[in-house]
Amino acid sequence: MTLASLPLTLVALQVVTGIALGAIYVLVGIGLSLIFGLMNIVNFAHGAFFMAGAYVGVFLYGYTGNFWVSLVVAPVAIGLLGLAVERVLIRPLYGRGPDDPLLLTFGLAYVVVESVRILFGLTGLPFSAPPPLRGAVDIGIGYFPLYRLFLIGFVGLVVLGLWLLIERTRFGLIIRAGARDPQIVQVLGIDIGRVWLAVFGLGCALAGLAGILAAPLQGVTPEMGVPVLAEAFVVTVVGGMGSLAGAVLAGLLVGIVVAMTSLIAPDLTKMAIFAVMALVLLVRPRGLLGRAGAFG
């Protein structure tokens, strides 16, 4: 099967499907890139936080019966977990070198996954979109799932909010300054430790938000964070370490590549995204929009 042999409407619908999938990658990639861009920490527990957000969301939805409550509370809960992890586990490792936080978060991922298996079982949990977001609507090129359209719009609003936070607020200015030169920020009387704490919590909250948003698309299992972690690293590298706009562009690109490859050659899906990463790095070693020492 080749792309040219497929109906144009099918290709167009698959592109929109890729954008919806890419929206998930955007959230996870921004969280990972935000943490690395400011703190220079490669967070291998990011996929576990993604999975934990899905489980917390499913639990809250079952307890309250309200999807919107779970959509708000789940990322907040994962963000608070991230604050605790940074304060108790990661902060004592500052100044030791990049390997120690990497190994710690790698081990933490296993702890989180095994804890979820103990609490919720090994088989996973089903999770459907809330009734108002079920069904499909005509978007001009065919019928498309309503929940995926909601996903695209909602993530767009979240990204806009993040851009305003980083580019138009004092906190965002501190984040950008801290990414370039944290010592100067400290000299100016700003507690950089509190900034790192807030950024790590925000990055984890974005992973948790992505997890609950992805749950209706793929179900909820303890292993759901493993492939997402690899894809998030691809998004971060392709977009450029520490670049918000790069993470958005790369997330959408990877989502479309995954969707189109799944349509033409499903067995090559994983290889395709790493091929994209290799091609981008050959042309632009810092990624599409990456800049050394900056988050912007």
Results as ranks from 00 to 15, higher is better:
V111I: 13
L164Y: 15
L289F: 12
G290C: 07
R96V: 15
M39Y: 05
A84Y: 10
V185Y: 12
A74L: 08
V111R: 02
I78K: 05
M241E: 11
L263S: 09
V56N: 13
V228A: 09
I212K: 03
G65I: 02
V42F: 06
V276K: 10
I212R: 01
M260D: 01
E231L: 10
V137H: 11
Q14L: 11
T9N: 14
D99Y: 15
G31P: 03
Y147Q: 10
I30H: 01
L38Y: 06
L133M: 12
L289H: 09
R176G: 06
L268V: 04
I264P: 08
L151K: 07
H46R: 01
I118F: 06
L165S: 13
A74T: 05
L197I: 01
Y63C: 04
G107I: 08
V111L: 11
V73Q: 10
F144K: 09
A278N: 02
S115Y: 10
L249S: 09
S262P: 07
F200T: 00
E114V: 11
G189Y: 03
L104F: 01
G287S: 03
W163N: 10
G293S: 03
A205N: 07
G31R: 12
P126D: 08
Q183R: 15
V159Q: 07
L89E: 06
M1K: 13
A84V: 13
I35P: 00
P130Q: 11
